[in-house]
Amino acid sequence: MKLFQYIIRRMSWGALVLLFVSFFSFLVIQLPPGDYLTSYMARLEKSGMSIDNASMVALRHSYGLDQPFLVQYGKWFCRFIQGDMGVSFLYTEKVKVIILERLPATLLLSITSLLVIYLISIPIGIYAARRQYSVGDFLAAFFGFIGMAVPGFLLALILMWIAYQGFGVSIGGLQSPQFMDQPMSWAKAIDFMKHLPIPIIVITMSGTAALIRTMRATLLDELGKQYVTTARAKGLRESKLINKYPVRAAMNPIISSGGWLLPELFSGETIAAIVLGLPTIGPLLYRALLGEDMYLAAGCLMILSLLTIIGMLISDIILAITDPRIRLG
């Protein structure tokens, strides 16, 4: 019952946060001088065409860009909560359609990446803490720091080159061109699986490295605590007592890190996604911001925030379930 109340409370906070995010992201998008039409006009002038002022004003009026900020925001927000995210200037298509098209790939990549990060970093972190200053610990630290230091796009380029030279896998995207518009088949699924490793490696690299350090540090902290000695004095087997007591306690920051890892994955993959040509929301947001396509940008930001808030909520709920001090404290 307490847990249920906790979830309700967290969800209402989440809704409030979303409201703030919507306002501020709308505000930030509006901050640079000019609007979609100015950048549109610049592009037209570059290509030698020009547009007279009267039709500019007419266009601006028809887009609603001549209205004050708060009015624009209010109109957009009222439509947003009804499920209408407006129309993208750049793509001249509904923002919802564009985002929904890219949402599955984004979710798939982010969630797989999150799982991969956990699966790799937790065991390595435990190993490194239990064998502090051993060769394995130093190796983990060495590769961990390299993973943190190498920029994702560089890694992406290197891996793409290796994949192309060594394995003949086509570069970029999540599927080979010949499967693009085909229905789902085994061959397509296998082709898709072949394309998955590189983006996953690029996206997870720095997160994994960071989480190994976190896991190691927290577990080292816990290993020195009295209750570990108590468990040892009780005659439990070393591996059993370590997994039951200190690892369980050290998992807390790891679980809550799920909350901040998710937005990092969404935004962190943008550059890698551009290099790799991945059909995710990151590059879409990037293009929308460059072109001052405010409805598309706001839509992307709202979806990313929503996913982040859901991620945080899930990690908080898991935390409340696993840690009695949070659940009952």
Binding site: Y227, K244, R248, R325
Partner: peptide, 20 residues
């Protein structure tokens, strides 16, 4: 350990695991 020689530790605050 514990069956034949058991021990009461000094710090009651930290000698039990917090999660069980």
């Amino acid at each position: 350990r514990w069956k034949e020689i058991a021990m009461i530790f000094q710090e009651p605050m930290t000698s039990f695991g917090p999660m069980h």
